[in-house]
Design a protein around this nucleic acid. Structure first.
Length: 766
DNA sequence: TAGGGAATATTTTTT
DNA sequence: ATATTCCCTA
């Protein structure tokens, strides 16, 4: 390789940038076509690269990054490169390393969220957090949401926590802190009380020293807006900013970028409006359409030559996407043999679909095709199941990319919760998760007591537990168990300071009784869970500190270790973006499933176009061959559902496709459904909104944010105001007289209940 | 407090 | 079909 750039790990010596040295045109540039090369070389000023599927977008991005380093226009630490997924970030990292000849350290290369956390950790105190804040996962978020709803006395049946969480996420997507939500956007959740709930939720997060995913960016925005000096630092720092998948950015990400780019204005965004598939998550295609307006003087470069797919495949994709309106419009072209036509297969049911796909895969394999070059792309996660079952019986190796992630499994989350408490003892959500897992006799009554005390004194659950074990407040049995647990945590915390992380985890699993619990569990999946825990320990060996490990867990939720031998890939269409395979199977092309009924119901025409783009993404993943299929009927929960072929099937250009459906199903064109007889219960999509039926139960529960956020409403007296001899009243034990005071612990001789030790906030002056 | 059994929801898509 | 939640009893 040419000149190793020797930039690794260098920090800029304050102001002076590395000087651009004259160099011969490097070899990597000659491997690009004209448009690609232009996109790489236009390093200065705002640039939008409209890159169709398979046009070498990633290559441009990585080459550009390497080029900037090569010309010494900036140090690695002055380059911000943002991707959408961790996978893309890793890929970019390794490809840049390949171009440069060695690993490049110090780049700000990662997802929006990981770059966001990095900034947020440095300035956490500016938004009322400590730098060690916890990143909540979806479970925690929901649990917290339920608590907030509970505190506000809102009927969770009628206003599900999920719905509130979704609403809040959407606000955060748009960069709206609670104070910024206008009445127009207040939504109708709980009769308009959602904003107050949002505020309460944020307040709870702050007390817990925690942030949810949306906060990672939202807090950055707040910091930038409120602290011009901080913002200015970053604006100076980031000489070059590169953004992948720009069409999928939401408002909050857009604002984040725009603020950061104001310094040097060297912002390069790569995207494809036809691949915008995250509208439901707040992504705004508008961002890409508006780029030239937002960044005056921006250049636009189009990449239209496709290097991936055969003309038949590309023609199919183009023909389909042409049904969308409001596109920027690109004309993709490719060279080479037409290749096979895209085949369309109608089948009887999902089982047959899986069987036939399985046969085809085996046949391809016999012809010498690698399994890893085949993928089944599904609309919804549950669709992988039928294929998994089938492959299991056929013995076809396969992997599910982006399914139920490793870190989302229950046993892993439990283990993590233990670690979180060790790491940060006021992580109430983690503590609550594991106080009684495995069962140790600490039931909800005990937890409730802990909560009361914690809230009354504004302390953490763990602190409340510490306080309570010294009293008679709890049942002796519970108290003993709790004390045991607290001792364990003390011990583990010490251990965590000395032992390697992996050893700590093993110790915790052992001493907490978690391993034992699983060993005694007769459930068929217990051995698997134990294996998973072993894997967790193994994963921990790769990271130094508990802090790093927990961060890894919360941000790198993907388990798509794309490696792992020769296996068929099972992927959702959403997580397939950015991947490519020789052979692609697209099952489940039925109305209601794809396009998905729920998308149609909630998003109307706009959502239909997004579904179509999803189909476009699916088709353009393939290099050589595509097999699309639809089933006449599908198992749904307990019953069956009859389906008609997706409208997308009809939209495929006849020239490039071939319908090889079995005769007698729907007929070759995919028209009219033959009534299939009595054994089928025709069930219209069961996914419709189900809110309406509670409509009249519209009680008004005057929710008052203060009642929840203002700390300790009615609690007795501040610590220290009780003295010996005072008469008091206790909820459970009745009247009594204080015989001793020790900090906030009172020893009380009760009239009826004898002498007990009690925390002062549980009593009131008589 | 735990465990059983009934009732109930679950299936979009993800950082 | 399966997972979660709720309610009851021991």
């Amino acid at each position: 390789m040419a000149d190793p750039f020797d930039l690794s790990g260098l920090e800029p010596p304050t102001e002076s940038a590395p000087s651009a040295g004259p160099k011969a045109a490097p070899a990597y540039l000659s491997r690009l076509n004209e448009a690609q090369r232009a996109a790489v070389e236009a390093t200065e000023g705002p640039l939008l690269v409209l890159a169709g599927a398979g046009t070498g977008k990633t290559r441009v991005l990585t080459t550009r990054l390497a080029h900037i380093l090569r010309l010494r226009l900036a140090w690695p630490s002055q380059i911000l490169a943002v991707t959408f997924t961790n996978r893309a970030a890793r890929e970019m990292q390794s490809r840049v390393a390949a171009l440069i000849g060695e690993a490049v350290d110090g780049l700000w290369l990662g997802t929006f969220h990981s770059n966001g956390v990095r900034i947020l950790r440095r300035h956490a105190e500016l938004v009322g957090l400590r730098p060690s804040f916890t990143i909540l996962d979806v479970d925690d978020q929901l649990r917290l949401m339920k608590q907030v709803l509970g505190a506000a006395n809102i009927d969770e049946k009628r206003w599900p926590a999920r719905a509130l969480a979704a609403q809040i996420d959407r606000w955060k997507d748009r960069g709206l802190a609670p104070g910024r939500v206008g009445t127009a956007q207040a939504g109708d959740f709980a009769d308009g009380r959602a904003v107050a709930l949002y505020a309460a939720y944020q307040e709870r997060l702050r007390t817990l020293n925690a942030a949810d995913f949306g906060d990672l960016l939202l807090h950055c925005l707040t910091i930038f807006t409120d602290n011009p000096d901080v913002l200015s630092d970053y604006q100076q720092r980031f000489k070059y900013i590169l953004v992948d998948e720009y069409q999928d950015t939401n408002v909050s990400q857009y604002l984040w970028l725009r603020l950061l780019a104001q310094g040097h204005k060297n912002l390069c965004c790569v995207g494809d409006d036809d691949q915008s598939i995250y509208g439901w998550r707040g992504a705004e295609v508008g961002n890409i359409l508006r780029f030239e307006k937002d960044f005056p003087g921006a250049s636009v470069i189009r990449l239209e030559r496709n290097y991936r797919s055969t003309p038949n495949i590309l023609g199919t994709a183009s023909g389909l996407i042409a049904h969308n309106e409001g596109r920027l419009g690109k004309t993709l072209w490719t060279e080479g043999e037409d290749g096979q036509k895209v085949t369309i297969h109608g089948v009887w049911d999902g089982e047959e679909e899986a069987r036939v796909v399985g046969e085809e895969i085996e046949s391809l394999q016999r012809q010498g095709h690698a399994l890893a070059e085949m993928a089944i792309l599904v609309r919804a996660g549950f669709q992988t199941r039928e294929f998994e079952d089938r492959f299991l019986t056929l013995g076809i190796p396969h992997r599910v990319i982006g399914g139920v992630g490793f870190y989302e499994r229950r046993e892993i989350r439990d283990a993590i919760a233990y670690l979180r408490v060790i790491h940060q003892d006021d992580d109430d959500l983690a503590f609550e998760r594991i106080v009684n897992v495995p069962k140790r006799g600490i039931g909800q009554a005990t937890v409730k007591t802990l909560h009361e005390l914690a809230r009354a004194q504004g302390i953490s659950l763990l602190a409340a537990a510490h306080a309570l074990v010294g009293t008679d407040e709890l049942r002796p049995q519970s108290r003993g168990a709790l004390r045991g647990l607290l001792d364990c945590f003390d011990r583990w915390r010490t251990a965590a300071a000395d032992l390697p992380l992996a050893d700590v985890i093993e110790l915790v699993l052992e001493e907490s009784g978690y391993t034992e619990m699983l060993q005694n569990d007769r459930a068929p999946d217990s051995p698997g869970r134990l294996d998973n825990l072993k894997e967790l320990v193994a994963a921990a060996e790769e990271l130094e500190t508990l802090t790093a490990f927990l961060e890894h867990v919360s941000l790198i939720m993907d388990n798509d270790r794309a490696a792992g031998g020769d296996a068929v890939n099972l992927v959702t269409l959403h997580s397939a973006k950015g991947l490519e395979f020789d052979s692609v199977f697209l099952p489940g092309w039925e109305e209601g499933l794809f396009p998905h009924q729920r998308a149609l119901d909630e998003g109307g025409a706009k959502a239909l176009e997004e579904e179509r783009r999803l189909a476009y993404v699916g088709i353009t993943r393939a290099r050589q061959r595509i097999r699309i299929s639809y089933a006449a009927s599908r198992r749904l929960f307990t019953g069956w559902q009859s389906n008609i072929p997706s409208r997308f099937v009809d939209e495929l250009p006849a020239k490039h496709v071939e319908n090889v459906s079995e005769p007698g199903l729907y007929g070759a064109q995919g028209v009219g459904l033959e009534d299939s007889g009595a054994e089928f219960i025709v069930q219209r999509p069961a996914f419709g909104p189900r809110r309406g039926r509670y409509a009249r139960h519209a009680a008004s529960n005057g929710f008052d944010a203060e009642a929840h956020t203002g700390q300790h409403p009615t609690q007795a007296k501040p610590s220290g105001s009780y003295t010996r001899g005072m008469r008091i009243f206790h909820q459970k034990f009745g009247y009594g007289r204080i015989v001793a005071v020790e900090d906030n612990r009172l020893e009380i001789a009760f009239d009826k209940a004898g002498t007990k030790k009690v925390i002062d906030s549980f009593v009131a002056p008589a």
